[in-house]
């Protein structure tokens, strides 16, 4: 690979080696793309198949004709209310993502830009928090939520994301080489307040990093099942993924077709959010461009 990479550049006039290499790269990419898309295709296709069809052959690449039947089953069950679920999921995921992205950037900014005594200790502390195994800690978290009476509210799923150690870490790592302190200093000379400098100058520069992290947070918050399942027990506050599991509640008769349809409906909003934010992944607003 390394040799080929060298070839690319040596043959500026694009010799055969270059085209062979490009063909190879394309092949790899197409293969990986197929591997990435197939599961979605299977999921969507299964949403159009009847339960016996799925039970007979779990995987098919050709759609069937039972899409409407599956919609009917979802409606009959009554527990899957796509609108309510979508609204709840959207509130939680948007809230958690916005808070996490904004405050993590702010915290990272505090670490990168300012010199303060407890800075190193604080960073070490953040790293330590990140390393705590999550599962068992949830026991204490449930207890707290139940004791404080925050069950069936969105707060315990939104507010804790203000302290998102992994994202602070990412923002710090991203800022360190890329963020020039000169910008802050020139802002100061212009008489800008520190908070203003952060909001109006630092945040725009951090856009690509924020977009990337926003995608990750939104996806994981949207798909989160374990915690919401225990905290949100009433029908009108349930999220979309919980509603999908509700389709599986009839233990003697599982309607796989409707479950796949539910999964498809759940993943659609994610697609939209992802493709909206993905322009930052595709184009990438280079940091340096802001400098001038």
């Amino acid at each position: 690979m390394a040799k080929e990479a060298t070839n690319v550049v040596k043959h500026r006039n694009h010799g055969t080696g270059y085209y062979v290499f490009i063909a190879f790269v394309m092949l790899v990419c197409i293969l990986l793309a197929v591997l990435s898309i197939i599961p979605f295709w299977i999921m969507i296709v299964n949403g159009t198949r009847s339960t016996p069809e799925i039970q007979a052959h779990a995987v098919s690449l050709l759609p069937s004709t039972h899409l409407m039947d599956n919609f009917k089953i979802i409606n009959e069950k009554g527990s899957f209310n796509a609108f309510v679920g979508f609204r709840n999921s959207l509130i939680i995921s948007t809230g958690a993502t916005a808070l996490a992205v904004y405050f993590s950037t702010l915290t990272a900014y505090a670490i990168v830009v300012y010199q303060w005594k407890l800075k190193r200790a604080f960073f070490t502390f953040i790293m330590a928090v990140m390393m705590i195994p999550a599962q068992v800690v949830t026991i204490g978290f449930y207890q707290m939520v139940y004791k404080v009476g925050l069950t069936n509210t969105f707060w315990p799923l939104i507010l804790p994301s203000i302290a998102a150690p992994a994202m602070v870490f990412f923002m710090k790592q991203y800022m360190e080489p890329a963020f020039s302190l000169e910008i802050v200093q020139s802002a100061r000379i212009d008489g800008a307040g520190e908070f203003y400098t952060f909001n109006k100058i630092a945040l725009p520069i951090m856009k690509p990093a924020m977009a990337t992290q926003a995608i990750f947070t939104f996806v994981s918050s949207w798909n989160n099942l374990f915690l919401p399942n225990v905290i949100l027990t009433k029908g009108n506050v349930k999220t979309m993924p919980i509603m999908v599991t509700m389709l599986k509640t009839d233990i003697y008769k599982v309607e796989y077709g409707s479950i796949y349809l539910g999964l498809t409906l759940t993943v659609l909003p994610l697609f939209i959010v992802y493709f909206l934010l993905s322009k930052y992944i595709i184009a990438g607003v280079a940091l340096g461009s802001v400098k001038g």
Partner: peptide, 13 residues
């Protein structure tokens, strides 16, 4: 400017 380091860390803490 050290104090801003502390101030900006408050929400997280």
């Amino acid at each position: 400017y050290a104090k801003y380091g502390y101030i900006f860390s408050i929400p997280f803490v």
